[in-house]
Design a protein around this nucleic acid. Sequence first.
DNA 1: CTACATGCAAATCGTTTGCACTCCA
DNA 2: TGGAGTGCAAACGATTTGCATGTAG
Lengths: 137, 137
Amino acid sequence: MNVTPQRVAVYRALLQAEDHPSPEELYRRVRRRMPSLSLATIYKALDALTRLGVAREVSVISERKRYDANLDRHHHLVCTRCKKIVDFYDDGLDAIAPPRRLSAFVAHSVSVQVMGLCGRCAQDTPRSRQKGRRACN
Amino acid sequence: MNVTPQRVAVYRALLQAEDHPSPEELYRRVRRRMPSLSLATIYKALDALTRLGVAREVSVISERKRYDANLDRHHHLVCTRCKKIVDFYDDGLDAIAPPRRLSAFVAHSVSVQVMGLCGRCAQDTPRSRQKGRRACN
DNA sequence: CTACATGCAAATCGTTTGCACTCCA
DNA sequence: TGGAGTGCAAACGATTTGCATGTAG
């Protein structure tokens, strides 16, 4: 893994940012100082920084929309490998009240996601860290 | 809002599903009994069901990828209107341990998202429920 | 008759990929 | 000289939209 001006610029912009910017947003910002930079490079740099472990994606459940007709209060186990989502119920977690010192923020709901590997995926790849999705169920 | 065979079929499939299906997945399932159904109708029906309040999107922070260079343990306030994401720290939440009776699931991290409206959006629309994104900061 | 819902195809948007080119080790 | 990184453009996949048609009130 190599240190390049582009990666440094992206990382700097990310460090300075307070707002969890999207790749496009970072592009807009970094390009001011480095007009030659391309959007594809932003994506590649973010991937590099993430693999390096100095940045991460804000927990996104999955790349697709997912729907639920279960309106009960519940939480989700999300397998980061095969993207399976399993409900789980937990009174303790339900009891979480949004902290009150949220200034002006009006909370509507609290959702807890436990990220990890489902049984099958955990067994399947004891140590390997493959990229991409896997068929599971 | 109107009850149609298509909407009923989509809702039924969603009720029976245990796995938080994506629109495409629902399409595959519903089409078995209603081959004329189109994918676009699935999307429209899901939108209708969501507006009706009988279904919901599994909490997706935003439609875009969002990155963070802050690796400290922290949680997120997500404004569902303007998509702003604000960090917050809370020792109580940090103390959440993934329940152990998760069968084979291997938990790596727990993330808490408080969904709601940021101050500006809450003020802006006292009662209206507009669709779409808003510029905020 | 009118308003709304459907199905299709085209358009859009974010993200990824292939490739030629450059740069430094 | 070769492997890695960049920039561009094309490809891709999910979602949305426009529009002609159908249908129920």
